[in-house]
Design a protein around this nucleic acid. Structure first.
Lengths: 350, 350
DNA sequence: CTGAAAGCGCTTACAG
DNA sequence: CTGAAAGCGCTTACAG
């Protein structure tokens, strides 16, 4: 197996890239049964503390790691959660970071699959299933509704931030409406009247935020000032929107609410470089409070989604589906919270 | 297994979340042997085109996916490459994106493991080994040299962008010296004399780039103008450095070379917001040409690493180690290329 | 605690 | 192409 197999090890142990040690090797080393080693590694009762210690010691000396493929195959439940995320999306990265501890808490392993430009969500999902995921956690998936439906029929599935009505999947998300309302209220309180929105097109959450923006503007009697610029959830969309506003005949709005943080950062950059001072001449508000929003030089006012809690609820929902305690289809909405930072302030007096 | 097992399926096939179909189910459906199905799924010769077609058709109808755990266990070689990367690093994300096709080319599967704040590189690496990785591809790992050494003794390992002398691992990276030299030459040609460097501390590549900066400055007779600000590979480090320079008694340099793109972006943001115009008052140059550098609103002058080629060579090196065609320890250095964009220009005439 | 056994879903090699 | 068999490295259940 190893190219070094016929080269005698140079006196140390473990030998250089020797055959991967198995449970049997550890058992032999300690002088116990394989079953006992298995039990120790699974943290089951039945072994004395001293034996446990000796098993772990021998294992680390031999460089033994339980073989997941064998473990997964042998045990009835794989206890693997497959996570789909978009590698370039900082908010997804935050979710992934939060899912690790949440999954560990309930005894699940995690398998990641990244959707990247050359590898679409379908391929990424199939890879997760191939790796024995018992349930799928999809971070803001963009596959069509009917595919979410089919997936839910096939495997326990939880979507984060994307709701597909009547699909047999659980959904955890953040209530868009109150968060957006809070943004608009806040800006109006500061004195803004011309508040534009760069939307997220058809991305998860975007239609809801767009509608909520419209309604909030109307409720303040600002229906005539509604201004929606088509966008998506990338920095590029934000910068395009900013350039479009700068080129527009109409005066700039005094505030722009972006559909997510990345889009907001694109806006921020283009305005700042064009000499439009933020927040003095224009306020910018994002959505997500992903880790980049809080960086000191970005310092973006944004709507915080409770990522640790979303992650925890998503894992919990998957676990409940797997344990069969209820039918899939639950829909959990968390509260958001406006985080005021340096990119927003009162409009310039004119 | 499934909570729906005793609920009769509502007339469709496949039944709702039924037992995961196995190769035997597909074989039975088509009326062939399991061995034949196995053969078809592995793309081996020995089945007629019509049979292949029928197998695939039945498989997709049943929702069958080969079980990786079983496959990995059964075949002598797992043909799995484990990738360690830092989820928050855009350059790492680029590498991951490039590794997928490179691995597929040579018939390898990919398992990802993200180093995140709550899950260090050691844990991430152990997870990769547990998932049967035959070889490890480590993107800019920050674990100590001796750990890289030990890892190389234990399993075929390739580091990308990080060289550990004498460790039994292959390394693919970009030559730092010529790239840095090109940056300094370019800036000096533009007329810059006060070129500062925000370094990457001890991060992979950083010491080399720092030395190369020093040497390049000296070779232009600008040894007295060497100015190094301690940093790392994050936006935060760049913004801290920019604030430090703004607060400094000395005049601002006319150009800053950052240790990577993220750091450059931090610099860019703080200078721009402080009203220091880029590139009119200060030029900024990054390193990596990660996907964010090319975003229209960032438009960062930077040193391009040939990511697709790095990925390809890394996968190739892993494959060579696994096939035993040579001893580990190879060290491949690629050429870089200066990409001039909008953040650099001649210094202000004064 | 041990020890023998079955089984997870594949791959592989082989005789036909 | 088939069919029977062995084996990958575990887990699980069981008799002792």
């Amino acid at each position: 197996m190893s190219r070094h197999e016929n080269t005698p090890p140079p006196g140390q142990s473990p030998p250089l890239r020797s055959r991967r040690p198995t449970m049997a090797d550890v058992a032999a080393e300690v002088g116990v049964s394989r079953a006992l080693v298995s039990l120790v590694f699974r943290g089951q009762p039945g072994a004395s503390p001293e034996t446990r210690e000796r098993v772990f010691e021998a294992a680390s000396r031999l460089g033994y790691r339980p073989d997941m493929a064998a473990r997964l195959l042998a045990r009835g439940r794989s206890k693997v959660l497959g996570i789909l995320f978009t590698a370039r999306n900082p908010y997804h990265v935050d979710l992934v970071e939060a899912i690790y501890p949440a999954a560990e808490e309930l005894g699940y392993d995690i398998v990641l699959s990244a959707a990247v430009p050359t590898r679409d969500e379908h391929k990424a999902i199939e890879a997760l299933i191939g790796h024995r995921s018992e349930a799928l956690l999809l971070c803001g998936p963009t596959i069509p509704d009917e595919d979410v439906h089919d997936l839910g029929r096939r495997i326990s599935t939880v979507t984060v931030g994307r709701r597909v009505a009547k699909a047999p999947v659980d959904t955890v998300t953040t209530s868009d409406r109150p968060g957006v309302r809070e943004v608009v209220d806040y800006l109006v309180d500061l004195g803004h009247r011309h508040i534009a929105h760069v939307d997220g097109g058809g991305r998860p959450g975007a239609p809801e935020r767009r509608r909520a923006y419209r309604d909030a503007m109307r409720s303040h009697g600002l229906g005539d000032n509604i201004r929606i610029i088509r966008g998506n959830h990338t920095e590029e969309a934000g910068s395009d929107a900013a350039r479009a506003m700068l080129a527009d005949d109409r005066p700039l709005p005094t505030a722009v609410f972006a559909s997510n943080d990345q889009c907001a950062i694109g806006l921020l950059d283009v305005f700042t470089r064009a000499g439009v001072s933020v927040p003095d001449q224009i306020s910018i508000v994002g959505y997500d409070d992903s880790h980049i929003a809080g960086l000191s030089h970005i310092d973006l006012t944004t709507v915080r989604q409770d990522v640790p809690r979303l992650a925890q609820l998503a894992v919990q929902a998957a676990d409940e589906q797997l344990r069969g305690v209820r039918e899939p289809g639950s829909y959990l909405k968390l509260e958001s919270k406006l985080v005021v930072r340096g990119t927003s302030g009162p409009p310039a007096a004119d």
